[in-house]
Design a binder for these strands. Sequence first.
RNA 1: ACCAGCCUGGCGGAAUGGUAGACGCGAUGGACUCAAAAUCCAUUGGUAGUAAUAUCGUGAGGGUUCAAGUCCCUUGGCUGGUACCA
Length: 940
Amino acid sequence: MYNHEQIEKKWQKYWEENETFKVGIDKNKKRFYMLVEFPYPSGVGLHVGHGRVYTASDVQARFKKARGYNVLFPMGWDAFGAPAEQYAIKNHIHPSEAVKENIEVFKGQMKSLGLSIDWSREFSTTDPEYYKLTQKQFLEFYKAGLAYKAEKEINWCPNCKMGLSNEDAQGGVCERCGTETTKKLKNQWVLKMSKYADKLIDGLDDTDFLDKVKTAQINWIGKSIGASVNFPIQDTEDCLEVFTTRCDTLFGVTFMVISPEHPYIEKYKDRINNLEEIRKYQEQAAHKSEIERTDNTKEKTGVVLQGLKAINPVNNQEIPIWVSDYVLSTYGTGAIMAVPAHDDRDYEFAKKFNIPMIQVLEEETGQKKENETKKNSIVAVLYDDQSNQYLTINWHENGGRLLIGGTIKEKETPLECAIREIKEETGYTNFELVKEGFKINHHYYAYNKNQYFNIECTTFLFKLNSMDQQAQQLDNDEKFDIEWVSKDVIEREIKDELHQKAFQYVTSSNAMIGDGIHIHSDFINGLNKEDAIHKMLHFLEKNQIGKQQVNYRLQDWIFSRQRFWGEPIPMIHCDDCGWVPVPDEELPVVLPNVQAYEPTDTGESPLANITDWVNVLCPKCGKQAKRETDTMPNWAGSSWYWLRYMDPHNENEIASKEALDYFGKVDLYDGGMEHATRHLLYARFWNIFLHEQGFVPNSEPFLRRISHGMILGPNGDKMSKSKGNVVNPNDMIKAYGADALRTYEMFIGDYSKDAAWNESGLRGCHKFLNRVWNLQNKLNDNLGYTKKLETIIHKTIKKVTEDIDRLDYNTAVSALMILLNEYEKEKSITKEDYRIIIQLLNPFAPHITEEINEICSLGDLLCNTPWPVYDSNKVIEETYEMVVQVNGKVRGKVEVERDTSKEDMEKLALDIENVKNHIEGKEISKVIVVPKKLVNIVVK
RNA sequence: ACCAGCCUGGCGGAAUGGUAGACGCGAUGGACUCAAAAUCCAUUGGUAGUAAUAUCGUGAGGGUUCAAGUCCCUUGGCUGGUACCA
């Protein structure tokens, strides 16, 4: 058994003393930038989940180094944030003290994992030298007109006197103290990120992010192309402006909805007759989070605005205005036109409040033909709630199973027709109407009349009250059975498109959101959705009612936080000059060293209480002025840190031009899926801006983005302190060594997926390394590879190389285990054999492999040795196992030469005893031969 | 509710449309030992059979194909993210 403690210390010391992983600009070498999201150094320390991520990055870094790249693999600390501030409030120490301690713990843990990090590039976002540059970059945003002050709502806890994130205010309750939160308007700094929405979408083309990451970003930005339409408010000069992606449904608008925060409520409060009711509703909405308001499982709420009406500009219809919290003030104009027939949310709202619907789009079924005869018809569904069955008509071979259908006669309403048809065809007499579904536009051909028809079909659902039945009144040619069947049978057996669709409409409670042709829509009647949108847009613009508009979900970035432990925003407010940037030479604006960090009653940052810090002279006019006391969000420091690693000790700029040009962009960026939208978008936005200002050479900062899975506790739950299932890497390293821990964390499963911790698995990897160690006893003096092992060695080199490239770490380790198994079957192995396995294993288990290499004098230090290459001629086996199938089932296997011909393969296959048994007495209809693989004999 | 992803033995997980379960853990039996640990050897998806072999089997139901864990449709469950986005 090897002594891991001693070996690991030895090699970690060696790497540190020899600066093995220190990297500089070397223009003769290709560079590779491996970045992993830097951690927030909490008091808890690393857990094995971090270990997985850092190990994987380290494997990649060591591998790329061996392949000849100049590898930049840095680490730093994202150390601003609330936990350190809370700690400071409690203990009356400066947060930087807590941060310093935590960093030491984290760094110690990382070092004991044996990571090949260039520690000379380490920094923390809380270093004044670093945040000086963060402040400088903020001022660049300000100078470019991209930073502005605006009134924005925050979640506010009246007890903690603190602004809260949505996350901390979940369920309208402060996470810290349980007090009900309110909303508070604050004047805040905002970055104009929305201006970059299109650039953030287009820039994705220059990246190699995982598809799901790209999708997440595109959905977050939420670009939609539509129209803004103005609905005049009756007896006022004002219009209610709405954004819609479906201006083709304007003729189906039956009401308007505005958000509870809409300014018109204030503006027209004197004309609103039920203001008290509205106020009450606003109050309720204020306590709900956007997530609650946007939860579609909850019932819709709302109040109609009495005293104000809107006018539909396309037909001058007067329509009511409702107030409801399903409309958000933060998206679009905070007001919508509601088309209940063609929008699910409006549909649900209209149903709850009994607001009428107008269907303006009919789905088309069947094939459209020339010379169609027009007809009106019905399809009716009769439901029996006693048996939970529906009535069908079974025509057997003359048309299969259908619902009740028929043509509307002259002077008959569709409803009258439906009732008549049910009575005539089925004889049932006692039933009542439940609902009328959407109309369908159907095309079909009637064989008996040799004619094409186009029908407008109205759909109905009736409920049976009793089984009373008269004799049916049928024509002579009507031969069918009436049958009660379940929903299941209907969905399976009714093949007719019209009847299928009709059944769907009357039994589901959704709006009709698909495409079709327009009805009841004046000048767009008969057009499909796309054409109707075009024509409507044209109409809106011509009549100055509205215009085409692009809308984004992406909002501007609120950049203010009312906290102490963040980068001070370097602005000074002067009563005469307004907002004035802190002059360059006075940066950084450093956080003062004080005794108390409690927040203020007014919701301002604790900095506001430190008067000798706040009061300054205006840089412009020299009069008394005040510093901005808000600080930057946590996301600020992480929005450019990868640039700093390129030249971390540069005092004046982000990094030197030389370093920026050489290291360029991050090649591989590893982080969690939870950062796929916010952090990654902020970082890209920041970088695109810096590029436009000429500070950095690339517009996109990251080439490839991958996401890793979590390590779950042994019980499959997320690891957390409160669940008591956190596994500390220190304990594992002590018991089994860093190499075993690293190997296990790579072997545990697919790197992109979550995996549950299992210490037995770790023991297995420890055993594996020990067996590799014990190969020392098998060395012989022969040269070269052992002949018998040659193929498997080359195959393993290929497999491990490709797997690391693909991030398939688990199968790479497994390939090495297989190689070891083969070695162990041999009586003895050569030094070359031994050297190759430890070389391939080195990125995973760097300490023990280096030690074996030294003890057995196998060659140069592994950390300085190029990655092995395989000989593609030696990867292929001489023979292979040919599989023989009969009708796709394996019936035999036979070992054959590599280059056996198709004919011979077939012959050999037919010669197998078991295969003969399975084809005996049957006719061979086909033989499929896949060279170097299998033969499949198809028999009848 | 929406978006994304996932679902394979007792467990973690392998499988360019071509032998399902590589590799590891665990379990069972055996060797070594006074004994245990460690180590080594053998077996290990279910069912039937001494065996050869047969049969079932990748959440469920359909489909495409000579051949489906893999592709298509429908559906259930789990996880993550979120925004009723008009």
